[in-house]
Amino acid sequence: MEKEDLSEIMRQHPFLDGLAFEHMQLLIGCASNARFADDSTIIQEGQVANKFYLIRSGRVALQMDVPGKAPVRIQTVGPGEVLGWSWLISPYRWHFSGVVVLETRAIVLDGECLRNKCAKDPEFGYEMLRRLSRVMERRIDATRLQLIDLYDATGGAPR
């Protein structure tokens, strides 16, 4: 795919909403387009984390491998969401696996490429972190809600 087309696709992704032109250019240099078939594993727990995925369509389940048991699925991510931030944080290893539930298309950003650009251009780096932090905050909130086992509590409305 041509870089111009990629740029157009990237511009439409909510994670990059309103990103400055020059920052977009920096990103495009690290980007490629990818398609993942059902049941394929995009990222593998414990492996080197060198990719950052902007999901365009489909659905990916994040799961933890539990020895002796079926993997535990924590969450799914879908269109408009991102997958993985371990590329940013040393020692750059995935803390969970990402398994395709519904055929998925994504923009793939190279982790090392991104890290280098972030390091060289702190303003760009801050912008990436700012956007990622928002995602992380939402994920932590969601995880907390899952932790309290909501549906065991009261149901709303008399019942």
């Binding site: 659905r59 389940a61 924590i74 969450q75 939402r138 969601a142 899952q146």
Partner: peptide, 18 residues
């Protein structure tokens, strides 16, 4: 969406607000 699903569940996993 569900809080917990296994590999047979093709739907969303996560809190309803997601």
């Amino acid at each position: 969406t569900v809080d917990r699903g296994d590999s047979s569940w093709k739907g969303h996993i996560g809190v309803v607000t997601s």
